[in-house]
């Protein structure tokens, strides 16, 4: 191992450390929020509205227009963002991987169907799809997650299909087929493990993207219930307060920034680690 390579690894670690510290801290805080803030920052106190941050130990990051504790709400609000981020990616992965496996492995009619479906999906601009979708079925947590799944499974399907196509001709698959291993077993035991790397990379980056998309939707008034604290909702509601009570939207904004940046750093680091050939681009 050359000195340069060792140094490279050292610098890689900076990306990893920064990523894990940012995303890890935020995730941990969010997961611990029921213990840290049992009331979930829901306590309205009109008398203490818009307290400035760092002036009152009970409200370290100040209070919002309804006198709720910003710190508690930021920490609790992360639950929605992370839930939307992870659940939508999980859904998209399941749908996308199955579709990709089927279309790449069986080819022919299924392949055509799935890929044309994917083309249609890719040709519809996301936000426009979102406003139409929400206008039909309404907003809310569940619908937001479904919307994100609908708009993102294609990435996984394409990625998996491409990989399956190139794996199909590999010797171990031929061998497995020859000795009569059932298709389903080949798909899940032999093909899937080989795809894990790029899929995990794409997932990490997508959780980051979806947290941002959720906040965009909420900003446009299409997102989740405003009574449930969420980062997107706090940003959107706080935007008109930026000039006289900056903390109402700056802290949730930083929460999004740190979490998403952490995930992006991790994704980038993972990509170099798991997917050196760069099958995933983001």
């Amino acid at each position: 191992m050359t000195q340069a390579a060792a140094r490279l690894r050292h610098f890689k670690n900076i990306e990893f450390i920064l990523g894990i510290v940012l995303a890890g801290t935020m995730t941990l805080a969010v997961l611990l929020s029921p213990l840290l803030f049992p009331d979930g920052g829901e306590q309205i106190n009109l008398a203490a509205r818009l307290t400035r941050p760092f002036t009152d130990w009970h409200h370290l990051l100040g209070t919002d227009p309804l006198g709720r504790d910003v710190l508690a709400r930021v920490v609790t609000g992360g639950r929605i963002s992370l839930l939307v981020g992870f659940a939508s990616v999980a859904g998209a992965v399941v749908v996308g991987v199955v579709m990709g496996l089927v279309s790449g492995y069986y080819r022919g009619f299924w392949d055509m169907l799935v890929m044309r479906f994917a083309d249609v999906q890719l040709a519809l601009p996301f936000i426009l799809l979102a406003i139409t979708f929400i206008a039909i079925v309404g907003g809310g947590l569940g619908n937001t997650i479904i919307l994100l799944i609908v708009s993102q499974w294609v990435q996984y399907a394409r990625l998996v299909r491409g990989s399956v196509l190139s794996l199909n001709d590999r010797e171990f698959i031929h061998a497995a087929k020859a000795i009569g291993v059932p298709d389903i077993k080949i798909l899940f035991q032999h093909l899937l493990p080989n795809l894990a790397g790029p899929v995990v990379v794409l997932m990490t980056l997508n959780v980051a993207t979806n947290i941002l998309l959720e906040s965009s939707l909420t900003f446009l008034g299409l997102g989740v219930d405003p009574t449930i604290p969420s980062w997107g909702g706090m940003l959107a509601d706080g935007r008109t307060y930026l000039q006289n009570a900056w903390w109402v939207s700056v802290f949730p904004g930083l929460a999004i920034l740190f979490t998403v940046l952490g995930l992006n750093l991790l994704g980038d680091w993972l990509r170099d680690l798991l997917d050196p050939t760069g099958r995933t681009e983001a």
Partner: peptide, 22 residues
């Protein structure tokens, strides 16, 4: 290629300039 508020571009493998060719 799927995009949204945060743009992310996934380029299918076949289109990578240096992507491995089957």
């Amino acid at each position: 290629m799927k995009t949204g508020g945060g743009i992310s571009i996934a380029i299918p493998r076949s289109r990578k300039p240096s992507g491995r060719i089957d």
